[in-house]
Design a binder for these strands. Structure first.
Lengths: 238, 238
DNA sequence: AGTTGTTGACTTGTATGGAAGTAGGCATGT
DNA sequence: ACATGCCTACTTCCATACAAGTCAACAACT
C-alpha cells in the first residue's frame, strides 16, 4: 500500500538513506493537499528545513516528477503540479478495468475466508466516526487491496500506486464530499455478490462503485478550478 | 509510446539535460536485452563512457530503480534486475483488463475511420520480413496504442509504460519464439469484431490475444532460468 | 513616459571530493 | 591446514562548489 506517512512533526531517521525518506514525506504532503497545486518548492530551502544537503532533496524531486506530482522547470523552479484532469479520468478507467476483473475472478472461485475477512472490515468501516474521512480512506484502501491480494495480483496494487495517486489527490481535496455510508453500502454489495458467486453482478457492482468519483468531480472542479489542468467535459465518461 | 532509442553509436545531445537522456538510453538497453540481467553497472564507468560526471548517471539509476529495471544495493553495486516473473504476470493481468475494456468501448461505438486505419496497419504488419521481429514489435506497439487513443484514454498507455516494460523485456529475449503470423491473425479478428460491433466477441478476441505470452513463458523460463526471479507455476493463470 | 540594457539574486544542472560501508586478498597466528 | 584480523580497493551516498539559465528591479537613454 502507498505509505502515506504522517508528515506533521516528522523527522529524518539518521540510519536509513535520506533521499527515499524525503520522497515519501513529500509525496504524502502533496497527495494529502498539504502542499497545494502550484506551490513553489526550493531545493535549498527544503534541504535547510530537513537539515540535509541539496542532493537528496533533488533526487526526491526527480522521482516525484516522474510520478507526475512535481513539475521541474530548469533554471526556473520546481512546483507542485496541478491535478491533471485527464490523468484522473484515465486512472479511473484503469482502476475500473482492473478491479472489475479482480472481482470477477474472486466471484468465480468463491473464497469463504476472504468473505469473512471482508465482513470484518465492513464493520470497521461502519464504525468510522462521522468527522474523520481520513480514517475511512485508509480502510477503503485496505478493502480494495485485500481484494487484489486475494486474486493473486498483489503487485498490481503496487504498480497502480502511481496511477492511483492522481485519484487520491482528488479524494483528499474533497474530503467532505464523499458519501461514506453510500460507499460502504456499495462495498457490502460487492461482498454479497462475491459470496453468492454472482459473477456479473459482482462485476457491475464494482464498476458502479468506482464510477462514484465521477459524480463528485464536476463539483470539485467548480470549487477549486485553479487546482486542475486539462479540464474537459466528462459527460462522455458517464 | 515508450521511446526505445537506438542505443548503438548513440551520443549525448549537449543542449538537453544529460540525466533524462541517460535514463532513456539505459532503459532501452535493458529492455532490449543489450544489458543483461545481473549485469553490474558502475557509476564512474558509465560516466566515463558517456563523458559526463557521476551525478547524472546516478540520477538515471534512481529512476530506473523506481521502474524496477535496476537494483541498487548500497555500498555494494548497481545491477540490472532479473525479470520478476510475478511482475510479468501481473502486468499481463492489468493489460488484459484494460485493453479488454478499451476494445469493448470501441466495439460499442463503432468507428469506421479507426477500422480503416487499423486495416492499413495490418497490411504493414503482414509485410514485415520474416527475420525482423523488432519491426513487428514496433508495429504491434502502434496497433495497441491506436486502440487506446481511439478510446480516449491515450494517457493510459503512458501510465502503463512502466508496467509494460516488464513484458517487453520478455518479448525481446524471446524474439524468435513469437508466432508473428498468428498474432497478426488475432489482430485481424479484433478489427473484424470492432467493425461488426460484436462487443463481447471483440473483448474475447483481445483477451485471448493478450494471453498469448503465457504460452511462451514456460519455454523462456526453461531456456534462460537465471534471467528470472520469483519463478512460480503459471498454470493458474491459464 | 517608454524602451532598452545591465546587474544581481535567484533557480536547477553538473562536477568533484570525501564519508561510510562492503568484499576479497593476504599475512599472521594457532 | 585453517581461522582470524587487517588492509586495500571498490561501491553508493552525501556535501559542497561551480556553471548556466531566468527573472525582476533599476538605471540610462531616446
Amino acid at each position: 500500500m502507498l505509505a502515506l506517512v504522517d508528515f506533521d512533526g516528522w523527522k529524518l531517521d539518521q540510519l536509513k538513506a535520506v533521499s527515499p525518506q524525503l520522497r515519501l514525506v513529500l509525496r504524502s504532503r502533496i497527495i494529502q493537499n498539504d502542499l497545494r497545486p502550484m506551490t513553489r518548492l526550493s531545493e535549498p530551502e527544503l534541504a535547510k528545513e530537513y537539515g540535509v544537503s541539496r542532493q537528496p532533496v533533488r533526487e526526491a524531486f526527480i522521482t516525484l516528477m516522474n510520478e507526475g506530482l512535481l513539475e521541474v522547470r530548469p533554471q526556473r523552479g520546481t512546483f507542485v503540479r496541478r491535478i491533471d484532469f485527464e490523468a484522473v479520468l484515465n486512472a479511473r478507467f484503469v482502476r475500473e478495468a482492473v478491479e472489475a476483473d479482480i472481482v470477477r475472478k474472486l466471484a468465480t472461485t468463491g473464497d469463504s475466508d476472504l468473505v469473512k475477512d471482508l465482513r470484518t472490515q465492513l464493520e470497521l468501516q461502519k464504525n468510522v466516526p462521522e468527522g474523520s474521512p481520513e480514517r475511512f480512506i485508509e480502510l477503503d484502501e485496505r478493502f480494495h487491496m485485500t481484494l487484489a491480494r486475494a486474486a493473486g495480483v498483489a503487485k498490481v496494487w503496487d504498480n497502480l500506486e502511481v496511477i492511483k495517486s492522481q485519484m487520491d489527490r482528488v479524494r483528499f481535496i474533497t474530503f467532505e464530499e464523499f458519501p461514506i455510508s453510500k460507499l460502504i453500502d456499495q462495498h457490502e454489495k460487492i461482498v454479497d455478490f462475491i459470496e453468492q458467486m454472482a459473477v456479473s453482478r459482482a462485476e457491475d457492482a464494482m464498476r458502479s462503485h468506482l464510477r462514484e468519483i465521477l459524480n463528485s468531480l464536476p463539483r470539485v472542479q467548480e470549487l477549486y478550478p485553479d487546482y486542475f489542468e486539462n479540464s474537459r467535459d466528462i459527460s462522455s465518461e458517464i
